[in-house]
């Protein structure tokens, strides 16, 4: 069962779309698992001035993407680095246990977009991003997945 907040963010997702001249783009997930998230960020004066997403996936995948972009928009890069999936879950008033991985995916998508930003702009990677794994989050938690 989804909370009203999750249903609201699924039915009326915030910040859907692409940013043509994005400063960073991050894509995570894989087709076999059924979730793919892509985040686009625009950075101005050390702040995330714009953030959008495109997501292929279930209700929770869309809702966590939407909520993560809402939480991050306007934040400084340092603040963005602190976003965890827990914050996203709390803001959505909870997620069913089998959907927690969607929130992890949203966190990873943001981190992937930040890594892309730092790399593209030849900036040193903050230590918080050094551990970002490119492997698939959902599969990491699911021994049944063979990818």
């Amino acid at each position: 069962m989804y909370s009203e907040k999750v249903l609201d963010h699924f039915t009326h997702p915030r910040n859907v779309g692409e940013i043509a001249d994005a400063d960073g783009v991050g894509t995570v997930g894989n087709p076999r698992c059924g979730d793919i998230m892509r985040f686009y960020i625009k950075v101005e004066d050390g702040r995330i001035s714009d953030i959008t997403f495109k997501t292929f996936g279930c209700g929770a995948a869309v809702a966590t993407s939407s909520m993560a972009t809402e939480l991050i928009r306007g934040k400084t890069l340092d603040e963005a680095l602190q976003l965890t999936n827990k914050t996203v879950i709390e803001a959505l008033e909870g997620l069913p246990p089998q959907k927690i991985h969607c929130s992890v995916l949203a966190e990873e998508a943001l981190r992937a977009a930040l890594v892309d930003y730092y790399t593209k702009h030849n900036l040193p990677l903050p230590k918080e991003l050094e551990t970002t794994a490119s492997c698939d989050v959902c599969c990491r938690n699911e021994p049944r997945c063979d990818k």
Binding site: F10, T11, G34, D35, F56, G57, C58, G59, A61
Partner: peptide
């Protein structure tokens, strides 16, 4: 193709 079943059901 290109969309996910649970999302279809919710939409």
């Amino acid at each position: 193709e290109g969309i996910e079943g649970e999302a279809i059901v919710l939409t």
